[in-house]
Simulated scan of single mutants.
Amino acid sequence: MKIMRAGERPSKLANPEWFTGRVWQEPVVEAEAPARLHALRVTFDPEARTAWHTHPLGQTLHVLSGVGLVGLRGEPPKVIRPGDTVWIPPGVEHWHGAAPDSQMCHLAMQEADDTGRVAEWLDQVSDAEYRRTTR
């Protein structure tokens, strides 16, 4: 058993190659093999968002605070709020981030594949894609 105390896990600014805007990441679980689970607490400033990406084994998002958006390629983004949980199946191109006028914090959970990979990063989400009308 290992207890990770609050404040012992460093928060860091997210890699700007994979994010637009100011985004903080704090590791929650970095399980060692044979476990596969990786979880991060991710906090997005208003309008901040991920790039398009996929996950080899899918991803679960659980919104902790604020208002966010999650988008699938070719579709308008959907609004997500505290308490909402989103499942994105393996290989589905998507993005997620904060709404234009709100911060958003979510727990992002994904499993590593047999090579240790948890995500494949693609192109940035354009402002036009971000601002598509939400239905």
Results as ranks from 00 to 15, higher is better:
residue 131 R to M: 14
residue 33 A to W: 13
residue 116 G to P: 02
residue 29 V to H: 08
residue 130 Y to F: 12
residue 78 K to F: 11
residue 83 G to D: 05
residue 50 T to Y: 02
residue 70 V to H: 03
residue 33 A to R: 13
residue 35 A to T: 09
residue 86 V to L: 09
residue 71 G to N: 00
residue 114 D to W: 04
residue 62 H to L: 15
residue 90 P to K: 07
residue 113 D to K: 03
residue 106 H to Y: 04
residue 120 E to P: 04
residue 41 R to S: 14
residue 36 R to C: 06
residue 121 W to L: 05
residue 134 T to F: 13
residue 51 A to K: 07
residue 111 E to S: 11
residue 39 A to G: 11
residue 95 W to N: 06
residue 125 V to L: 04
residue 82 P to A: 03
residue 94 H to G: 03
residue 44 F to K: 01
residue 89 P to R: 05
residue 39 A to Q: 07
residue 64 L to W: 04
residue 96 H to I: 06
residue 114 D to P: 04
residue 102 S to E: 07
residue 100 P to T: 12
residue 117 R to W: 06
residue 96 H to N: 10
residue 109 M to C: 14
residue 88 I to L: 11
residue 29 V to S: 10
residue 44 F to C: 00
residue 108 A to P: 00
residue 131 R to E: 14
residue 44 F to V: 03
residue 41 R to M: 10
residue 92 V to C: 05
residue 87 W to A: 15
residue 42 V to L: 04
residue 135 R to M: 12
residue 40 L to C: 08
residue 33 A to M: 12
residue 112 A to R: 06
residue 80 I to L: 08
residue 29 V to E: 09
residue 47 E to K: 12
residue 53 H to N: 09
residue 62 H to V: 14
residue 115 T to V: 11
residue 89 P to H: 04
residue 82 P to W: 02
residue 108 A to R: 01
residue 59 Q to L: 06
residue 130 Y to W: 13
residue 58 G to V: 08
residue 88 I to D: 01
residue 84 D to Y: 03
residue 59 Q to T: 14
residue 62 H to Q: 15
residue 52 W to N: 02
residue 73 R to C: 10
residue 99 A to E: 05
residue 29 V to L: 11
residue 129 E to K: 05
residue 29 V to G: 07
residue 56 P to A: 11
residue 64 L to Y: 10
residue 67 V to L: 09
residue 67 V to Q: 09
residue 86 V to P: 07
residue 87 W to F: 15
residue 99 A to R: 00
residue 30 E to L: 12
residue 131 R to N: 15
residue 118 V to Y: 02
residue 78 K to W: 10
residue 35 A to C: 12
residue 85 T to Q: 15
residue 119 A to H: 04
residue 119 A to Y: 03
residue 122 L to E: 02
residue 121 W to C: 02
residue 63 V to R: 00
residue 76 P to G: 09
residue 70 V to M: 09
residue 123 D to S: 15
residue 65 S to K: 07
residue 44 F to I: 05
residue 70 V to T: 08
residue 115 T to L: 08
residue 82 P to S: 10
residue 120 E to R: 12
residue 133 T to E: 15
residue 43 T to H: 00
residue 123 D to I: 12
residue 117 R to E: 12
residue 47 E to F: 12
residue 33 A to I: 13
residue 133 T to D: 15
residue 115 T to M: 08
residue 68 G to M: 00
residue 73 R to P: 05
residue 56 P to Y: 00
residue 46 P to E: 09
residue 51 A to H: 12
residue 67 V to S: 06
residue 101 D to V: 13
residue 89 P to I: 04
residue 55 H to C: 09
residue 126 S to F: 08
residue 72 L to P: 01
residue 52 W to M: 02
residue 83 G to P: 02
residue 98 A to M: 07
residue 74 G to F: 05
residue 61 L to F: 10
residue 90 P to Y: 05
